Amino acid sequence: MSSLLIFATFFYIIASYTLVLRAVIQVPSAAGRKKAFSTCSSHLVVVFLFYGSVMITYVSPGSGQAEDMQKFTTLFYSVLTPFFNPMIYSLRNKEMKDALKKVLGGS
């Protein structure tokens, strides 16, 4: 039952984003399309991080999965995904991108 609920909500989000992307493609200005794609991609990364780890935890067969792996995926979707969420959204900001490149040794 949990698999059905997880997949149903996941496919609903994907269908919603398909409609959003179709609307974004019709935006007349290139700058507007770029900004809209940036916002959508940030959100989709967070959605895939969350749903990917939830699916690994609740959809995969429990008997064959190691207990350590379950602990890791539970930690991932309950702690790490919310931790990375603000960072993913802040990378839409040009100054944040430049600062990250500087910290990581890029030009």
Rank of each mutant, 00 (worst) to 15 (best):
A23N: 11
M69N: 11
H43E: 11
L4W: 11
K97V: 15
F7A: 01
F76G: 02
L80V: 14
V20C: 07
L75K: 05
Q65S: 06
Q70Y: 08
S53M: 12
A66I: 07
F84I: 09
F83H: 01
V79E: 07
Y17T: 02
M1C: 01
E67A: 12
I25V: 14
Y89F: 08
R22P: 03
R33M: 09
N93A: 00
T39H: 09
L49A: 07
K102Q: 07
P28K: 01
V27M: 12
M1D: 03
T9M: 09
K94Y: 01
R33D: 05
S53A: 14
Y89T: 01
D68T: 14
E95Q: 02
L104P: 00
V79H: 00
K101Y: 05
L80Y: 12
V54S: 13
F7K: 06
T73N: 15
F11H: 08
Y51R: 10
D68M: 06
K94L: 00
V46G: 03
L49Q: 14
A23E: 14
M55D: 09
E95V: 04
I14M: 02
S16Q: 13
A31L: 04
V20Q: 12
D68A: 05
V54G: 10
G52M: 08
P28D: 04
S63N: 13
Y51G: 04
T57G: 01
T57W: 11
Y17G: 06
P86K: 02
V20W: 13
M96K: 02
F50Y: 15
T9Y: 07
G64S: 07
V59H: 04
Q26C: 15
N85E: 07
G32T: 10
L19A: 02
K34Y: 03
V103Q: 02
C40N: 14
H43I: 07
K34W: 09
